[in-house]
Simulated scan of single mutants.
Amino acid sequence: MSKVLHISASPRGERSASTTVARHFLDAYLAAHPGDTVETLDLWTANLPEFDGAALDAKYAILHGQPFTPEQAAAWTAIVSLAEQFKAADKFVFSLPMWNFGIPYKLKQWIDLIAQPGLTFSFSPETGYTGLVTGKPAVAVYARGGAYGPGTGAEGYDAQTTYFRQVLGFVGVTDLREILVEPTLAGGEAKDAAVAVAKGRADEIAHTF
């Protein structure tokens, strides 16, 4: 039995194309894998700690092999809890809209919190950086108002998928299947068609994920 962690990065609720397709995927997935479970982390309702002050100092204490102060230890506990929630899952589903060609700031905040030395990656002078979250597949549902996929001529504006692939790979998640929902700002039949195509792709992936 596998545990799937769905990390939702859109604040639009039922109006979100990325959330709609991700939920469709999860329904299809659970139908194909009835013994598995899904946990959802909504980044817009989660109490994400700020990564400043004592938390930032705690990271540098780790990097320099120094002990924590009591304040640093308390700040680091919250970050460890978030990272452990991530690492406890067997599979991941991310649903995220494109904001200003990149990702929403809440998702970036979550990434900056969990991408920590000793938690999701390690470093040595001999081998460099090594991701610690390995052997776990992921699905990313990307929604975009415009069209930026292969063949559109606007691929260079897409910092959403390029950054997300890079940061997941950095922590060790290299088995990534992607679903594009675009263009959502077209509205009407064009948007419905984009969602329908994405749901079809989600159905294909769900059976083998």
Results as ranks from 00 to 15, higher is better:
residue 54 A to R: 04
residue 123 F to R: 01
residue 19 T to D: 15
residue 118 G to E: 12
residue 90 D to Y: 00
residue 156 G to H: 14
residue 200 G to H: 02
residue 119 L to Q: 08
residue 17 A to K: 02
residue 84 E to Q: 10
residue 93 V to C: 05
residue 40 T to K: 02
residue 116 Q to N: 11
residue 105 Y to L: 07
residue 59 K to F: 15
residue 174 T to A: 08
residue 46 A to F: 07
residue 125 P to G: 10
residue 180 L to M: 08
residue 26 L to Y: 02
residue 73 A to I: 11
residue 43 L to E: 06
residue 49 P to G: 08
residue 163 Y to Q: 10
residue 187 G to H: 07
residue 45 T to E: 12
residue 168 L to M: 02
residue 42 D to N: 08
residue 166 Q to H: 09
residue 93 V to Q: 01
residue 186 A to T: 08
residue 197 V to K: 04
residue 40 T to S: 05
residue 17 A to Q: 08
residue 127 T to F: 12
residue 144 R to E: 12
residue 100 N to F: 02
residue 159 A to Y: 14
residue 41 L to F: 05
residue 104 P to V: 00
residue 88 A to N: 10
residue 60 Y to K: 10
residue 185 L to N: 15
residue 2 S to E: 12
residue 137 P to Y: 01
residue 111 I to A: 04
residue 21 V to R: 01
residue 84 E to G: 07
residue 135 G to C: 15
residue 111 I to L: 07
residue 14 E to F: 05
residue 198 A to V: 04
residue 76 W to T: 03
residue 63 L to Q: 15
residue 9 A to D: 05
residue 83 A to F: 08
residue 11 P to A: 06
residue 179 I to L: 06
residue 96 L to M: 14
residue 104 P to F: 03
residue 37 T to Q: 07
residue 138 A to F: 08
residue 118 G to W: 11
residue 94 F to W: 04
residue 141 V to E: 12
residue 173 V to L: 03
residue 55 A to R: 06
residue 139 V to M: 05
residue 175 D to R: 01
residue 178 E to N: 09
residue 13 G to Y: 06
residue 209 F to V: 02
residue 54 A to Y: 05
residue 53 G to Y: 13
residue 169 G to F: 03
residue 105 Y to M: 07
residue 174 T to F: 05
residue 46 A to Q: 10
